[in-house]
Simulated scan of single mutants.
Amino acid sequence: MSELQKRLRRFDRERGWDGVRPEHTLLHLLEELGEVARELLREVGYKEGEAQLTGELADVGLLLYKLADQLGIDLEAAMLEKLAANEARFPLPESREAMARYLERNDED
């Protein structure tokens, strides 16, 4: 388990928040993800105001790590394993070609 997950577990336990069920953590995570969307719209100028993306993304990350901990998943280890699988699944030449096609299509819009 990562140090971040250990620290989050201690943080919640000290405050009595360790009784929150995983499904409620997921709801909080989705709520925070919506806040990231709103801040991103501010960042690109679609909405008024100064974007606060850093804090909102941190909230999403913390809740994702908390959910993983509640489910008994070492998120850092899982992500490293998934990244290794993705590196094998998406080799460089083919991936670069696919990205070039994507950029060409989006430049046409």
Rank of each mutant, 00 (worst) to 15 (best):
K66D: 11
H28S: 12
D12T: 06
K82Y: 05
E32A: 15
L29G: 02
D69Q: 11
T54Q: 12
L80C: 11
L80G: 11
M99R: 11
A37C: 12
Q70L: 13
R38N: 08
R21G: 04
Q5N: 13
G16A: 05
G34A: 09
R38D: 12
E87N: 10
R42N: 04
K82W: 02
L67Y: 12
L41I: 01
L67P: 05
Y102R: 14
G55I: 03
H24K: 05
A85T: 10
K82G: 05
Q52C: 09
A77W: 08
L26T: 01
T54S: 12
G72Q: 04
L30K: 11
L40K: 02
D69R: 02
Y65L: 07
G19R: 10
V44N: 05
L40M: 14
L26H: 00
V36A: 03
D74V: 07
Y65S: 10
K6S: 11
R9P: 01
E35G: 06
R9I: 06
E94M: 08
A68Y: 01
R105L: 15
L29A: 03
E3P: 02
D74N: 14
E3W: 05
N86K: 11
L57M: 11
Q70M: 10
K66S: 10
A51E: 03
Q52W: 07
N106D: 07
A78E: 15
P91V: 13
L83K: 14
Q70C: 10
E76Y: 12
G61W: 08
R21M: 07
E43L: 06
A37D: 09
E23F: 09
R42W: 02
E104W: 01
K82A: 13
F11P: 00
E108W: 04
L83N: 15
R15H: 10
L33K: 00
L62M: 08
E50M: 12
A85E: 15
K82I: 03
E43T: 03
M79W: 09
L63D: 03
L27A: 15
N106L: 08
E104D: 10
V20Q: 03
E39L: 08
D18L: 04
A88W: 00
S95A: 14
R10K: 10
A58N: 06
R42Q: 14
A78G: 11
S95E: 11
N106T: 04
L92A: 15
A78R: 14
A58L: 13
R105A: 15
L75D: 08
L62S: 04
L53M: 10
T25H: 05
L26D: 00
S95K: 10
L8E: 02
K66A: 12
V20C: 08
W17P: 00
V20K: 00
Q52M: 13
R101D: 11
L40W: 13
L80W: 12
F90S: 04
V36T: 09
E56I: 06
E48I: 01
G34E: 01
H28A: 15
R7T: 09
V20N: 02
F90V: 02
S2N: 13
D74E: 11
D12K: 04
T25C: 06
D107C: 04
